[in-house]
Design a protein around this nucleic acid. Structure first.
Length: 904
RNA sequence: GGUCGAUUAGCUCAGUUGGUUAGAGCGCACGGUUCACAUCCGUGAGGUCGAAGGUUCGAGUCCUUCAUCGACCACCA
């Protein structure tokens, strides 16, 4: 039967069938009617058109580890999956496809275009959910939701209407961020500032009249004021120039006007505290239709904004004919050229500033005056702020609490209307009956105007920001606004796992919506994972071609290798570096670990035999020292891993599992019990080893299952079980630490034994003793207990250190290599004829020097009264013991050295 | 301009509340045909913990300053 298993684990052969089996078994399903305590995670819904990248790989593996662990721990665990319609992003994708056929969305018209997007989404969309399966994600797929589903759309509309009725949604004419390429408004968060090398243009505006004193003059004698701008084309929309009220330089011209060059318009000089007299010339051009600050200032001074641009950022009807129809950047050139010709260009400076770009298409955003819908955020933000201050929501790592709170403290209203076609249509209708003008906001599509009864209602053409549906995700997916069983059971959720980049977009808004509509925060813990970067620290991006395709990793190394790698490398909030040019370096260790598990399983199968495996409980009296040791270690590691998971220290859990299985179970325990399993130490000893082995494997595989679900399940399924001993699924139960197994004495004894074996191996390697050659070991200074341990470990010493015989006591004058163990035990390897005496002398002297210097340091510390009186008693005691052992070691080593020196 | 991170072995990173000789994986060197695994086993080399001060009996860990890199926020034209 063991022969049936190949010596190499093949993830490709195992993963898919296992996943299908899990799914068929309903392993991932969460039951709203269960009595178990719920545990809920909602997935950050990926864009419906997205394809899996390493960031998803990391984020979703973390969620899967948490959800599998909780499921094993007996919770009714729901991992809610789904996708986001991703308004701008998806619309852009489809528009690009249209463009390939030489068409625009306007050629199709709204309805046909939306059909086109749906066709695209139905066709290629959601493939990312398939890809999540490939990395083992255990979502409850039967609950998959899409933000444009009927149910979720109903939730969106309900929320819009409620907020409107509460006065928290309003419509208004303000400066918003406008993307001239996407032709839509953006929220403040969607306009991403980017450091850009630009210019600062200093322009001269002539003063009308002769009142000016102390101002510079043009060649023709007119006085002028210099204003600076990074966007000179906007001067065509200037309505004033502002100066600080206390600025003496301009006190004399406050009553006069300026000539706005190129336009023939006259504009006033106004004074306002907003202007910083220290900056530049101390005079600011005011363009209320194209700058938010100017807009506010204009309002204060009752100046009328002048909109100079069309939606695609060309110069509009309000500018002189020469500039009309020009693109904003062309216009910039022309404006500057004209100023230069007129002698009105003071200077141009290089200027680095951050200018906002569209987060979807990277086009430079144009601040633009337009009529949009907004959500009044302050009333929603206050309770959300409360929630983190009183600890109802906790961030991991903690430092993000501050980021979250800062944003909420300085929150601004949320522009939610988008001039797109793909998304939730705004549920507002305008009555077009003459003289009515009523705005109807309604849950149901209205057929007539409630005010005038007119039937000519026109629905708002815009759709809602895509985040306006995402912020409802934790409860809209569970059936809200209906009072469903699922909502009752699984809301509020427990943990949200996402990237710090969407704290504002999504996390904060979900918390606000949760409190506002459900009366409770949507989750208690927010775990923020880092960003996946390449080995040079760059963000993975398509244009750099430095990304790693998770599916390729799955194909080459297996999903478990991918998962182990990202979990072991993922401190909370720490970025992770993966080298796309050397996948082996990153994922080889994970694959090797899976293979190690596989082979340990093969080993067990070969050695457990065909018959029944004895139960550990029955074998209790026959357990040997090493059995009790590995059980003790298992218990300690179980505790450690459980605690790590509880504290979101996933990397600790993964590396602890790795260290235990490879470093303790495989490297030591399996090696130690080989002779017993072969039956060389008698039937009872064999049965004890078998019982222990199968228990340890079972527990360890379950400990590792959340991180490496496939390999652990594959091996676990092959373990021989007596009927009824275990259920058929790995999820049966999370291993619990067993207090009964913990045994410090046993651990100490085996630790000494391990050190002894290590020391012998070390000396053998150092002196080049032939690998096959068995040598004798002489031990002295041992305790009676350890003597007993050694007595029972002859076979182990033979196998693990090639020791043919252990003798006790020291024979004076014998030549060989000597080493002192931590416990003070002296290990002596008689190596006559093999050992290089000079080398050994040098080695011993080195040892003595090292001990001497440590002894000095330790003595000094103990002579320091402050240390003795202030340090904890156990630390002082430890130092005392150290000192004692130093002198003992020195004595023993010196004796050996004397022997060597005596023998020339 | 503000806020916050990071800096530990050649590389990627651990290092919990200050307390034995600072760890792991990879890489490197040496040695291994022991019947689970060469995707393996054993041994080893390699670190003034970014710099300088300070607190302390004791600092990789706490404080200050500085340097380098990075992130986020911000309306200075």
């Amino acid at each position: 039967m063991a022969e049936a298993l190949p010596p190499q684990y093949d993830p490709g052969l195992n993963e898919e069938p296992l996943y299908r089996w899990w799914e068929e078994q309903g392993f991932f399903r969460a039951d709203a009617r269960s009595d178990r305590e719920p545990y809920t995670i909602v997935i950050p819904p990926p864009n419906v058109t997205a394809i899996l990248h390493m960031g998803h790989g990391l984020n979703n593996t973390i969620q899967d580890v948490l959800i599998r662990w909780r499921r094993m721990a007996g919770r009714e665990a729901l991992w809610q999956p789904g996708t986001d319609h991703a308004g701008i992003a998806t619309q852009n994708v489809v528009e690009r496809r249209l463009a390939e056929r030489g068409k625009t969305r306007f050629d199709l018209g709204r309805e046909a275009f939306v059909d086109e997007v749906w066709a695209y989404v139905d066709d290629t969309g959601s493939s990312i959910l398939e890809q999540l399966r490939a990395i083992g994600c255990s979502c409850d797929w039967e609950r998959t939701r899409f933000t444009l589903d009927d149910g979720l759309s109903r939730a969106v509309r309900e929320v819009f209407v409620r907020l409107y009725e509460k006065g928290l949604i309003y419509r208004g004419n303000y400066i918003i961020n406008w993307c001239p390429r996407c032709l839509t408004a953006l929220s403040d968060e969607e306009a991403e500032p980017e450091e850009t090398q630009g210019k600062l243009y200093h322009l001269r505006y002539p003063v009308i009249g002769d009142a000016a004193v102390g101002l510079p003059r043009l060649d023709d004698g007119r006085a002028y004021i210099v204003v600076a701008t990074t966007r000179p084309e906007t001067m065509l929309g200037d309505v004033a120039v502002a100066v600080n009220p206390g600025d003496e330089r301009y006190a004399g011209v406050l009553a006069t006007e300026l000539e706005l060059p190129l336009t023939g318009r006259r504009i006033p000089i106004v004074s306002d505290d907003y202007v910083d007299p220290e900056f530049g010339s101390g005079a600011v051009k005011i363009t209320p239709a194209h700058d938010p600050n100017d807009f506010d200032l204009a309002k204060r001074h009752d100046l009328k904004p002048l909109d100079i641009m069309t939606p695609d950022a060309r110069m509009g009807a309000a500018v002189p004919e020469a500039f009309r129809g020009l693109d904003r950047f062309e216009a910039r050139e022309r404006v500057i050229a004209s100023f230069r010709e007129l002698g009105l260009l003071e200077k141009i400076e290089d200027y680095t500033t951050s200018i906002p770009h569209c987060y979807r298409c990277d086009t430079v955003v144009e601040p633009r005056l337009s009529e949009q819908w907004f959500v009044k955020m302050r009333p929603l933000a206050e309770p959300a702020l409360e929630a983190s201050r009183d600890g109802r929501v906790r961030f991991t790592p903690d430092r993000f609490t501050k980021v979250y709170e800062n944003w909420l403290e300085n929150i601004r209203d949320w522009c939610i209307s988008r001039q797109l076609w793909w998304g939730h249509r705004i549920p507002a209708w305008y009555c077009r009956s003459p003289g009515c003008g009523e705005i109807v906001v309604s849950r149901e599509d209205p057929t007539r105007c409630p005010t005038c009864g007119g039937r000519d209602l026109n629905q708002d053409a815009d759709v809602l920001d895509t985040w306006f549906s995402s912020w409802l995700w934790p409860f809209s997916t569970l059936g809200w606004p209906d009072a469903t069983e699922s909502l009752e059971k699984f809301y509020p959720g427990n943990t949200l796992v996402t990237g710090p980049d969407i704290i504002f977009f999504w996390v904060a808004r979900m918390i606000m919506a949760g409190i506002e509509f459900m009366g409770e925060v949507p989750f208690r813990d927010v775990y923020l994972n880092g960003i996946v970067r390449d080995h040079l620290g760059r963000k993975q991006s398509k244009s750099l071609g430095n990304g790693i395709d998770p599916l390729e990793v799955v194909r080459l190394y297996g999903a478990d290798a991918l998962r182990y790698t990202v979990i072991a490398g993922a401190g909370a909030g720490t970025d992770q570096h993966l080298n796309y040019e050397n996948l082996e370096e990153s994922f080889g260790p994970g694959r090797n670990f899976a293979n190690k598990l596989w082979n340990a399983g093969r080993f067990a199968l070969m050695n457990l035999g065909e018959g029944e495996v004895p139960r550990l409980s029955e074998m209790e009296p026959s357990l040997e020292l090493v059995d009790r040791w590995i059980l003790s270690r298992l218990s300690a590691r179980t505790r450690e891993i459980t605690e790590s998971l509880e504290r979101f220290r996933l990397h600790e859990a993964a590396t602890a599992g790795h260290g235990f299985f490879w470093g303790e179970v495989a490297d030591w325990y399996l090696e130690m019990i080989k002779p017993r399993l072969r039956g060389e130490m008698g039937a009872e000893s064999r049965r004890a080893a078998q019982a222990t082995l199968v228990t340890v494997l079972d527990r360890t595989l379950r400990l590792l299952h959340p991180v490496m679900p496939f390999i652990t399940e594959a091996v676990w399924q092959k373990l021989p079980w007596r009927d009824g001993d275990a259920p058929s699924l790995m999820i049966a139960a999370w291993p619990r630490p067993e207090p009964a197994w913990e045994d410090a004495d046993v651990e100490r004894a085996i630790a000494d034994l391990q050190e002894l074996i290590g020391t012998v191996r070390n000396l053998r390697a150092e002196y080049g003793v032939q690998p096959g050659l068995r040598v004798r070991l002489r031990v002295s200074g041992e305790t009676p207990e350890f003597r007993e341990v050694l007595g029972g470990s002859a076979r182990m010493m033979a196998d693990l250190a090639r020791i043919e015989d252990v003798a006790f006591g020291r024979v004076e004058g014998e030549i060989g290599a000597v080493a002192i163990l931590t416990s003070g035990i002296e290990a002596f390897l008689p190596l006559t004829g093999v050992i290089d005496l000079d080398k050994e002398r040098a080695r011993l002297r080195g040892e003595l020097d090292r001990i001497a210097s440590q002894e000095v340091a330790t003595r000094k510390r103990l002579e320091n009264e402050s240390f003795v009186s202030r340090a904890p008693a156990e630390v002082v005691e430890r130092e005392r013991e150290k000192l004692a052992s130093f002198s003992e070691q020195t004595e023993k080593l010196s004796r050996s050295l004397q022997v060597l020196e005596g023998s020339g």
